[in-house]
Amino acid sequence: MLSIGEFSKICEVSTKTLRYYDEMGLIRPDEINPENGYRYYSISQLKKMLLINRLKSYQFSLEEIKAILELDEDQFEEKLCSALLRKSKEVQDKLSALEYTLQQMGRDILHLETGIPIMSYLDEIEVELVQTKSMNILYLRQMLSRDDYALGYGMFFNRLFQKIATEKLTILGTPITIYHSPEYNPTGNDTEFAIPIKEAVKGTRDLPGSLCAKSVVKGSYSELTSVYAKLREWIEHEGYEMVSSPYEVYVTNPYQVTGAEDLITEVYFPVKKK
């Protein structure tokens, strides 16, 4: 048996963390001395602790790790493999985002070194006034927090595509996200996911055509906030006002492009003249 101190030293996990893991049921001491409360771990538990450390280094949350450790033995390898594949995709997405950020920083440094203001890129964002046509959309509407966005987008669009496949519906356009909340709230935003289809069935509605200020983003979704700011500036400057919720049309599928620089997103702000 190993004392909590010895177990802590071998696995490089503090005794405070080990006590917390015990409280949450992640890994419990094999034995607790009833007289003095000293905690002891078995040699066999080293393997489990090393697995926990390994999964943590792969960016799994403690809740995710606990769920994995509670899997039945006959399902463990298969479910763990699936979880690792999913987490690998998440890590790759983060790496791609960091690479894009580094490229952006490099451009900003180059601009500053040559006397170009860091925010001058806003002047390069083009805005045009367009008249859109009405669309019949299959939709799902959900309150989503900031942390929900990454997984939520894929999950809800997948549900829509599954319904389209099951009911043999006809797709007429690429996915759309409509943002209904009047202000940003990190705890939850009224978000509508939609796909234009031909058939009017349960779960569809009309997205009316309207006059819109439109801009196109070529690159990472992180650029969208800059485009939103440019659109609002243009609307104010040109004497228009917003009449309904802004929406994004995803021209490219993020799962089918080689990098963030290949993403194309159209942004529409429905407007009318003041």
Rank of each mutant, 00 (worst) to 15 (best):
F161M: 13
S57T: 13
Q162P: 00
Y20F: 14
E6Q: 14
T101A: 15
R205E: 12
S57K: 15
M135N: 02
V271H: 02
T191S: 00
T17N: 09
Q256L: 14
M143I: 14
Y240T: 06
C81T: 14
M105A: 11
S210G: 07
L51A: 06
F156N: 08
L102N: 08
F157D: 02
I137W: 01
V251G: 05
T174K: 15
L102M: 13
S61K: 03
R205V: 05
G115L: 03
D22H: 10
M105P: 00
D72G: 13
E241Y: 10
A260H: 11
G106N: 08
K16H: 15
M105R: 01
D190E: 14
E241S: 12
P175F: 05
P270E: 07
K87N: 15
L211E: 05
L62C: 07
T265A: 09
L122V: 02
E113N: 13
I176C: 04
S96H: 08
V267S: 07
K198G: 07
T265G: 08
C81G: 13
T225R: 11
M242N: 05
P117S: 09
T114L: 13
K230G: 03
A200F: 11
I137C: 02
C11S: 07
L122F: 08
E90A: 13
P34H: 03
A194R: 04
L211Y: 04
A67N: 14
L263P: 04
Q59G: 04
L112A: 12
R141M: 05
T177D: 07
E238W: 09
S82Y: 14
E70C: 08
M242L: 15
Q162M: 10
F156V: 05
R39I: 03
L211N: 01
L46D: 00
L98R: 06
I65C: 06
K79H: 13
S96K: 11
D123Q: 12
S3I: 03
G203K: 03
L138C: 04
G37T: 01
E261Q: 14
N53P: 01
C212A: 08
I109Y: 09
K274H: 11
D108T: 12
M155C: 11
L98T: 12
L129V: 12
K218S: 11
